[in-house]
């Protein structure tokens, strides 16, 4: 394993700066599509700055977990992001098992997010945590299977290897098994980032919220870390989806020209994905909580079929 400090620093900066922008963009486009003016796209930056400056209110009965959770949520998402090839085909970090480590890190973050929700002892926090864990228990297998579909084709769970293998001729990208796995992973993306068919990111209506319920007791710096962590996770999943299934334009080396093309390609792919998310959010109604397993069941079956198809279409 060779660590390149420059690459790590660059990707960290890119992740940290891009994540709020993507959230802001989705929020803005969603508003536009619903004939509202909507917040400016850099609103999340202002929010984060404001949260970072504010004092914190810590619940009386909270233990150390309450203060520890935001850091774990934030850092696990960041670390997962460093293991995904964003601009260069070689990810800055590649640890034990590649994509398995990414899924594991995201699970760790989610675990602490749920603990943080429970720790303050409010009823809503506990409710949000239990719902989050229910949904993630259903979403995670689908996510693993969808990524394994690509991994089997490449013969490695290392994300950098997957991306490099995908850099063949363009027509090779129209892989039938990937079509199913992509849809499955997109459904997982909606569930994991708390998008509308599953959770409503804009609601504070007590009966429906999932992610927001866990953050209710957080304020100030902790809230900033939680929010930033959530948008980082969203960016990580979107990049994973974009770069693993469509590794077009990713720089094979670190020449400035290749990096420029790669940055443009990444921006285009993220914009398209964000537009898809916005379309889904606007055209669908939120599902009843007990209908969410149906949606994730679809994702799971699709991912399973995709995985099986790799043997049948091979």
């Amino acid at each position: 394993m060779n660590l390149n400090p420059l690459a790590i620093a660059l990707q960290t900066a890119l992740l940290l700066l891009l994540a709020p922008l993507v959230s802001g963009l989705i929020r803005n486009w969603k508003a536009k599509l619903q004939n509202r003016r909507g917040p400016r796209i850099w609103q999340p930056y202002s929010d984060l700055l404001k949260f970072l400056r504010k004092d914190m209110v810590i619940p009386e009965h909270a233990s150390w977990v309450f203060g520890f959770a935001p850091y774990v949520v934030f850092l696990s998402a960041l670390l997962a992001g460093l293991m995904i090839p964003m601009l260069t085909a070689q990810a800055p970090l590649s640890l034990f098992g590649g994509v398995l480590a990414v899924v594991g890190l995201l699970a760790l973050g989610r675990f602490f997010l749920a603990l943080g929700g429970l720790d303050a002892g409010s009823a809503f926090g506990g409710m949000g945590s239990s719902r989050e864990m229910t949904i993630s228990a259903l979403a995670e297998p689908a996510m693993m299977l969808a990524i394994f579909t690509v991994a089997i084709g490449v013969g490695s769970t290392d994300l950098s290897r997957m991306v490099q293998a995908g850099q063949g001729p363009v027509w090779k990208l129209f892989n039938p098994t990937h079509a199913m796995a992509f849809v499955a992973l997109f459904l997982v993306l909606l569930a994991e980032t708390g998008r509308i068919p599953v959770d409503n990111p804009a609601t504070h209506l007590e009966l429906t919220m999932i992610h927001e319920a866990m953050l209710l007791e957080y304020s100030g710096r902790y809230l900033a870390l939680m929010e930033w962590g959530a948008s980082l996770k969203q960016l990580v999943l979107m990049t994973l989806l974009a770069n693993v299934f469509l590794p077009v334009g990713i720089a094979p080396d670190t020449s400035p020209a290749a990096l420029g093309v790669s940055a443009l390609a990444l921006a285009a792919k993220l914009l398209v994905l964000a537009a898809e998310v916005v379309l889904v959010e606007t055209t669908n109604a939120k599902l009843r909580l007990f209908r969410v397993p149906d949606l994730l069941g679809v994702a799971f079956i699709l991912a399973t079929l995709a995985l099986l198809s790799t043997f049948f279409f091979g």
């Binding site: 129209f174 892989n175 039938p176 079509a179 199913m180 198809s309």
Partner: peptide, 8 residues
């Protein structure tokens, strides 16, 4: 490849 993709 394209046909199988569309079929999928």
């Amino acid at each position: 490849q394209l046909i199988t993709f569309c079929a999928a």
